[in-house]
């Protein structure tokens, strides 16, 4: 019987070395898995009261397709299911959204991220439930849902040096500094072009920091 070139005790010693190394460095063999269970929330009512998904509306802007469906109206709120393609795997959210109902614009909205991506017309999309608060009784009226911007949520401590570089490369003469301290993050513009308002300068800074795509995606609904 042919003997192995490497004695068994050598193999055991090597394996022991690896195990000791991994233990000392605190390496985890299994990452914790989080159960994606949705907690109770007001959107539950919206979900159950939503109109079945036969009627869908599709818009494309900036090469990203967005779909609105499951439109629901109650005296308290208007609800939509919004799905869209994303440029990368980040937690893309509807960021700037408004609803015009009748002649009134409602800029405040709430959204809930649905955990699983969906395939719509062969495209993988990330989906959210949107709701807009309504006041007073509503009759059926024309509505316009306007999504001006989708964005990845802002990290607690974002990489603002990269944003400085981006603005400089784009020839934007804005100088700013950012501070992260005691659970607060923010940036302050200290130099900007004379013909630019401070609000516009701040907007440019945060746009550069945040990963976003601007639309608009506009959906018109008629009763």
């Amino acid at each position: 019987m042919k003997r192995s070139h490497i004695p068994t005790w050598c193999i055991l010693l090597l394996l022991g070395g690896m195990a000791t190394g991994l233990v000392f460095t605190g390496m985890k063999f299994v990452q914790p898995v989080f159960a994606e269970t949705s907690p109770d929330h007001p959107f539950i009512n919206l979900m159950s009261a939503a109109i079945p998904a036969e009627q869908t509306y599709i818009q494309t802007a900036n090469n990203l397709t967005m779909q609105a469906s499951r439109i629901s109206i109650s005296p308290e709120q208007a609800g939509f299911k919004l799905c869209f393609q994303t440029p990368n795997p980040g937690d893309w959210l509807p960021w700037e959204v408004s609803l015009v109902i009748g002649k009134q614009e409602i800029p405040d909205f709430s959204s809930m991220t649905l955990s699983e991506p969906e395939t719509v017309n062969g495209m993988e999309m990330k989906c959210h439930l949107l709701s807009f608060p309504l006041s007073g009784s509503r009759t059926a009226q024309d509505m316009i849902l306007r999504v001006d911007q989708i964005a990845v949520s802002m990290p607690e401590y974002p990489d603002y040096e990269r944003a400085k570089q981006q603005l400089a490369e784009a020839g934007v003469a804005i100088e700013f500094t950012c501070k992260h301290q005691d659970y607060i993050f923010g940036c302050e513009v200290f130099k900007k072009p004379a013909d630019m308002s401070l609000e516009d300068a701040e907007q440019l800074v945060y746009d550069a920091i945040q990963d976003d795509v601007k639309g608009p995606w506009v959906f018109e609904f008629q009763p």
Binding site: H41, D91, F109, M112, S153, E156, Y157
Partner: peptide, 21 residues
């Protein structure tokens, strides 16, 4: 603990959001 100083925010996502006043 602070989600940033513990490194937990590296895998953060926003589940719900709302704008109000």
């Amino acid at each position: 603990l602070n989600p940033n100083s513990t490194g937990c925010d590296a895998s953060a996502t926003t589940l719900y959001q709302t704008t109000n006043n």
